[in-house]
Amino acid sequence: MLALDTLHGIRVVASPSALDAASWPDNTTVLRLAPDDVFVIGATIEHAAVIATADADAIIVAESGFVGCWLHNDALAEVATHIEWHIPTHRPAFAQGYVAGVPAKLWLTDDRALLLCASPYAHDLSERLKGSA
């Protein structure tokens, strides 16, 4: 069974240019969900102060609605058998789409990958990936 744990961070919805210009602390993982939407794992609301200045309408909230787990090579290869679409080959890379038919996301780094999904799908995803980790 995959041990999917809650990922704590912030969610920022703002103009794409404000998000482009933002910089984040080193120990955070920055997932650009859409041009105007970013999920920064490990960040706190204070880290987004510069965005609030750049875009007065920005929405900045604490986000704990995603769960995920880190996968190493073999486990990632196994999960990849449940993915129909082309997984990016460059690193780091962010990808999102169905994994075993469940809406999920992948953050791929040189030596490992974070598999995450919205928490209501956690049970489905780990059920369908039984044996993958």
């Binding site: 859409a34 129909e84 679409w85 082309h86 990808a95 999102q96 789409g97 169905y98």
Partner: peptide, 11 residues
């Protein structure tokens, strides 16, 4: 345009 080519079921 954001995510690339995906099966229609995702949309």
């Amino acid at each position: 345009p954001q995510c690339g080519s995906r099966p229609v079921e995702e949309f």
